[in-house]
């Protein structure tokens, strides 16, 4: 009997939860704010779905009832991707070690 591909995706999902669990526990508490902003940025990989939706219009029809939602989602996700990664970058650049020259 063949295994439903859904089961494979479910396996990836469950294993990723465990990976996430162990990875996030190892994040130092002082970086919890950047953690939130970076998880925010990466969850915007939902833009993948938005792009497929936006390009779903048939030939010659760019804006159909379904592709408009895709375009809207692209804007929202793009704000998040750029905003999320850049603000994380900005924050991380501020974390400095004590100068040793004293």
């Amino acid at each position: 009997m063949e295994i439903d591909p859904f089961i494979f995706r479910l396996s990836i999902f469950i294993l990723s939860i465990f990976v996430g669990y162990y990875v996030v526990w190892s994040v130092t508490p002082s970086l919890h704010t950047p953690l939130m902003s970076v998880t925010n940025a990466i969850s915007s990989v939902i833009i993948v779905g938005a792009i497929i939706a936006a390009l779903s219009g048939s030939d010659g029809v760019v804006f159909s009832s379904s592709s408009i939602y895709g375009f809207l989602a692209i804007i929202l996700a793009a704000v998040n991707i750029f905003g999320g990664f850049l603000v994380t970058q900005r924050m991380l650049a501020m974390y400095k070690k004590k100068k040793k020259d004293k």
Binding site: S16, I17, G20, Y21, V23, V24, L35, I42, V45, V48
Partner: peptide
């Protein structure tokens, strides 16, 4: 989409 599933799980547990 695997990327989305992995990310969703990571962010969810985080």
């Amino acid at each position: 989409n695997t990327a989305l599933i992995i990310t969703g799980a990571l962010v969810g547990s985080s």
